[in-house]
Simulated assay, not measured.
Amino acid sequence: MQKVTTFLWYDDQAEQAAQRYVSLLPNSRIVRVERMGADDADPSAGTVVVTFELDGIEYQAMNAGPLFPFTEAISISVLCDDQAEVDRLWDALTADGGEPSRCGWLKDRWGLSWQIVPRALIELQRDPDPARARRANDAMLQMGKIDIAALYAAADAG
């Protein structure tokens, strides 16, 4: 058990969200599901707390009702190796009611914000040629899902 974990508050689908997330990233798993207040008559009653790992990082999620919905003030950022990974995660996380946003950000169907970031973007933003880095960054600012080929085209257009 990690000493520090991110704790996510869901209305009523923490377990479903955790199952979806671990299905998308390697080295991910459900660690434990605790059902507090459930009984034999109604196993779905009570509070559910799910401990899960995404690429080895532990998170906890709880069904706690609609009092505190997610905002963009917190997000999970995933560094992707290539366009195929960007596309796969973007499509999976925006499916079934998720919402695409700008600059590689999206909200999943539960309202949690994600940043789907290709390594190429970070490398281009750190390019030793400041004009090339600026062109790549300016291109990213116009995108929803990040398009790696378009980033390179913009960076090299100078």
Rank of each mutant, 00 (worst) to 15 (best):
Q2Y: 00
Q2G: 05
K3P: 05
F7S: 04
F7L: 08
Y10Q: 03
D11F: 14
D11S: 15
D12F: 01
Q13R: 14
Q13K: 14
Q13D: 12
A14H: 02
E15H: 11
R20I: 00
R20G: 01
Y21C: 03
Y21P: 01
V22Q: 03
V22R: 09
S23F: 14
N27W: 06
S28M: 14
I30L: 04
I30C: 06
I30G: 05
V31F: 09
V31I: 15
R32T: 08
E34A: 14
G37I: 12
A38Q: 08
D39W: 11
D40K: 06
A41P: 08
D42I: 10
D42S: 11
D42G: 06
S44R: 10
G46T: 01
T47F: 04
V48N: 05
V50Y: 08
T51C: 04
F52H: 10
L54W: 08
D55L: 14
G56A: 07
I57D: 04
E58Q: 07
N63Q: 10
N63V: 09
G65A: 13
G65F: 11
P66V: 13
P69S: 09
F70G: 05
T71G: 13
T71I: 13
E72A: 14
A73T: 04
S75N: 01
I76G: 03
S77C: 11
S77R: 09
V78E: 04
V78P: 05
L79C: 01
L79N: 03
D81P: 03
D82L: 07
D87R: 14
R88I: 13
R88T: 13
R88F: 10
R88Y: 12
L89Y: 12
L89G: 06
D91N: 13
L93G: 07
L93S: 05
A95E: 09
D96C: 04
D96W: 01
G97M: 15
G98C: 15
E99I: 04
C103Q: 08
G104Y: 03
W105K: 05
D108I: 08
R109E: 05
R109A: 09
G111Q: 00
L112F: 03
L112D: 01
Q115W: 12
I116R: 04
V117G: 06
A120C: 01
I122Q: 14
E123Y: 09
Q125V: 12
R126L: 12
D127N: 11
D127K: 01
P128N: 12
D129W: 11
D129A: 07
A131F: 08
A131C: 04
R134D: 10
R135S: 03
A136V: 02
M140G: 03
Q142N: 15
Q142H: 10
Q142S: 15
M143H: 07
G144R: 03
G144E: 05
G144C: 10
I146D: 00
I148D: 04
A149R: 15
A150M: 09
L151T: 07
A153F: 12
A153Y: 11
A153N: 12
A154D: 06
A154S: 09
D156Y: 12
